[in-house]
Amino acid sequence: MADARKLARRARMLRWLLNCYPPYIGAGIRVQSISADFCQVKVRMGLSRFNRNYVGTQFGGSLYSMVDPFYMLMLMQLLGREYIVWDKAASIDFIAPGKGPVFADLRIDEGLLTEIREHTAGGKKYLPRLQVDIRDAAGELVARVDKTLYVRLKPQARQA
């Protein structure tokens, strides 16, 4: 019970810190919620003069920025200190112009955590691929981001 409260407090603190992060403020990115168990993050980005490109739509870099750190941060919290978690690669596919507010809903389920633990149990690295869609207020797909993460059990945890 105490661990759940500690995790929920950590989620609230991380949300607050990210919403005070100057690049996110400038880009109009707001972390709407981080679930108490770190399995879900919801992010919103409005369209403003600070993130509008020459043709009046969302900058592609801002679209990517709004989802960039979250899978790594979520896995770090969910797997614990025994694991090394890094972003390894990413790509973004721009589907339609972002002409207003856009939203992303990032989720990690228990199946992925089990898969990661199984693949890294012997000390080998694992490169899970995750995907997140960025949608407009009408639910239309604006961009799709593919992330590859690097996950490995730390040497001290392998010997235990």
Rank of each mutant, 00 (worst) to 15 (best):
M1S: 14
A2S: 13
D3W: 06
R5T: 07
K6Q: 13
A8D: 11
A8T: 09
A8I: 09
R9N: 11
R9W: 12
R9L: 14
A11S: 10
R12V: 03
R12E: 15
R12L: 14
R15P: 05
W16K: 14
L17C: 13
N19W: 00
Y21V: 10
P23D: 06
Y24I: 03
I25S: 03
G28W: 00
I29L: 03
R30C: 04
V31R: 01
I34F: 06
A36R: 14
D37A: 01
F38A: 09
F38R: 07
C39S: 15
V41I: 13
K42P: 00
V43E: 02
R44W: 13
M45L: 03
M45F: 00
M45Q: 05
S48D: 02
S48Q: 02
N53L: 01
Y54K: 07
G56S: 06
G56H: 04
T57M: 10
T57S: 15
Q58I: 01
F59C: 01
G60H: 00
V67N: 06
F70Q: 03
Y71L: 05
M72N: 02
M72T: 12
L73Q: 02
L75Y: 06
L75R: 05
G80L: 07
R81S: 15
R81P: 07
E82T: 12
E82Q: 15
I84E: 13
V85W: 06
V85G: 08
V85H: 07
W86H: 11
D87S: 02
A89D: 15
A89C: 05
A90W: 12
A90G: 14
I92Q: 02
D93F: 09
D93R: 15
D93M: 09
A96W: 09
A96H: 15
G98P: 05
K99R: 15
V102H: 06
F103T: 11
F103S: 10
L106F: 04
L106R: 01
L106S: 03
D109T: 01
E110T: 13
L112R: 14
E115A: 14
E115F: 13
E115I: 07
R117P: 11
R117Y: 11
E118N: 14
A121L: 13
G122N: 14
G123C: 10
K124Y: 08
K125P: 08
L127C: 03
L127G: 01
V132Q: 06
I134L: 12
R135Y: 05
A138L: 09
L141Y: 02
R144W: 00
R144P: 00
D146V: 07
D146R: 11
K147D: 01
K147F: 01
T148E: 15
L149P: 02
Y150Q: 08
R152P: 06
P155W: 09
A157Q: 08
Q159P: 00
Q159M: 11
